[in-house]
């Protein structure tokens, strides 16, 4: 058993492939940033629908949130990759194909938009009616109110929650390897097939993700706390 342990903790093989693996980790980051942008935009749109005065809009927003918050990431990625292009193709009468990267970004973006929508909504609803009345009394339009009164406060209020969701999103980017986006896990499985030594490779992959996520999550939390206090002061 101790031989296996030494083998598992030996970083030599992992280090040998560091360039390929680092490129994989960069792909995790690309997917993360693109999906986060999609999730924030669509999440905001869904949240605005959910607090809309007109009931049909609210229904659409609620449906969006319930569907995407309850959907497993993996099935959504597979669905977007294999089903959505076919449906779109039937709609416009042309062959449509998504690259794995695009599918991953769309799927993760939509799934996490459900979570972000709820965070945005909680933030929006926590804004005192008086602020909105004051803005209207100054003659601001709805868009100006959204951009200058609502969003700045919402962003500050949702930061801690949003940081948690960004961390979950980053963790979810590991499963994009399953539709052949060349991320770190994909590269690890490729190298494993070549070297036939899963022990050190998977152990160090897990340790790498642990260190990256632990450090990034910690510093994001500290940053957001610092920023909140500085602005609130």
């Amino acid at each position: 058993m101790s031989d296996a342990l030494i083998d598992a903790l030996n970083p030599a093989l992992f280090w040998e492939y560091r360039l390929v693996l680092l490129r994989g980790l960069a792909f995790n980051a690309y997917v993360f940033f693109a999906a986060a942008a999609v999730a924030l935009l669509i999440g905001l749109a869904a949240a605005l629908l959910r607090v809309n005065r007109a009931r049909p809009f609210r229904w659409v927003g609620t449906l969006h949130v319930e569907v995407f918050r309850n959907a497993p990431d993996y099935i959504m990625i597979v669905w977007v990759h294999f089903v959505l292009p076919l449906l779109l193709g039937k709609l416009i009468g042309q062959r449509v194909e998504f690259s794995p990267f695009v599918s991953a970004v769309i799927a993760l973006g939509f799934v996490y938009s459900g979570y972000f929508a709820e965070t945005f909504r909680a933030g929006i609803q926590s804004i005192p009616q008086g602020h909105l009345d004051a803005a209207r009394a100054c003659g601001m339009g709805e868009t100006t109110i959204l951009v200058r009164i609502i969003l700045p406060q919402v962003v500050r209020r949702m930061l801690p929650e949003a940081v948690n969701q960004f961390v979950s999103l980053f963790k979810a980017t590991t499963i994009v390897s399953l539709i052949a986006v060349p991320d770190l896990m994909y590269q690890v499985s490729m190298v494993t097939q070549q070297e036939m030594r899963p022990l050190p490779l998977y152990t160090w992959a897990a340790l790498t993700y642990f260190v990256v996520i632990y450090l990034v999550a910690g510093s994001l939390r500290r940053l957001s706390e610092h920023w909140r206090q500085k602005i609130y002061a």
């Binding site: 499963i175 896990m185 897990a206 996520i213």
Partner: peptide, 11 residues
């Protein structure tokens, strides 16, 4: 908490 579930599953 800090390792993705997929990575842990493979591990």
């Amino acid at each position: 908490r800090a390792t993705p579930i997929f990575v842990q599953l493979m591990w």
